[in-house]
């Protein structure tokens, strides 16, 4: 009996020291104890494929594919609208917005700007986002004269295709979101050159003017 308990205690201790405790950090892949149908022979998003030569389950869009539909039905209705989709009208950069800019547009634009643009362009568009401190010093200041005069269509094309050292953001910002961001950039610019006279009477007191 004593021998049994000695062996038992020892093996339990050995087992515990091998298995460790719950939640211990480790780079050992998770064990699947009852692997019944846990892993199936099917393709999942962004996973590995043995079949395709490039090893991806996600297939790239074949070259020359024409967009027939966007996720957003409102965008789908506007597939023929060049101003909306390319920022150009008859080859020239389009001035103005291809849709009505509402409060929702502005809020969406602010939201998207902060996610995708602010890190480099800065919260107020001065080109001094957090990356400025890390050596990205060539980001332009939106408050320079030439950006006030730049057509909305040109800004749209810049976001869509990228320019200079800036990459394309078309995979991150939908067409509609790009226009919303432009509207917000316009608001940032407007705010910079605004004067007290631009503030509505009702708001002045609240702002301490």
């Amino acid at each position: 009996m004593r021998i049994f308990f000695a062996i038992f205690a020892f093996s339990l201790l050995a087992l515990l020291s091998i298995l460790g405790f719950r939640g211990a950090t480790s780079d050992r892949p998770p064990i699947e104890i009852f692997p019944d149908m846990v892993r199936q022979s099917k393709y999942k998003a962004q996973s590995h494929s043995e079949f395709f030569e490039d090893g991806r389950t996600d297939r790239p869009v074949p070259p020359g594919t024409v967009h027939r539909q966007y996720d957003n039905p409102q965008e789908s209705e506007r597939l023929d609208d060049d101003h909306f989709n390319t920022g150009r009208v008859n080859g020239d950069y389009a001035e103005g917005f291809p849709m009505v800019v509402t409060r929702e547009t502005m809020e969406r634009g602010r939201d998207r700007y902060r996610i995708f643009c602010g890190s480099c362009h800065g919260g107020i568009g001065d080109g001094q986002g957090i990356t400025f401190e890390y050596g990205m010093v060539t980001v332009p200041d939106f408050h320079a004269e030439r950006f006030y005069d730049m057509a909305e269509g040109e800004i749209f094309e810049t976001i869509t295709e990228g320019r200079g050292l800036m990459g394309s953001y078309k995979d991150k910002l939908s067409v509609e979101d790009r226009w919303a961001v432009i509207a917000y950039v316009r608001a940032l610019q407007r705010a910079r050159v605004g004067t007290e006279a631009d503030v509505p009477e009702a708001e002045r007191e609240r702002l301490g003017l």
Binding site: G23, T25, P30, E32, I33
Partner: peptide, 24 residues
Amino acid sequence: LGVTVVGLVTYYFTPKYTRVGYAP
């Protein structure tokens, strides 16, 4: 032995042990 086996299974046969802490 029975109590130990039940205890070990309860403690170890769960994602709280098998998954939590995975940091490849």
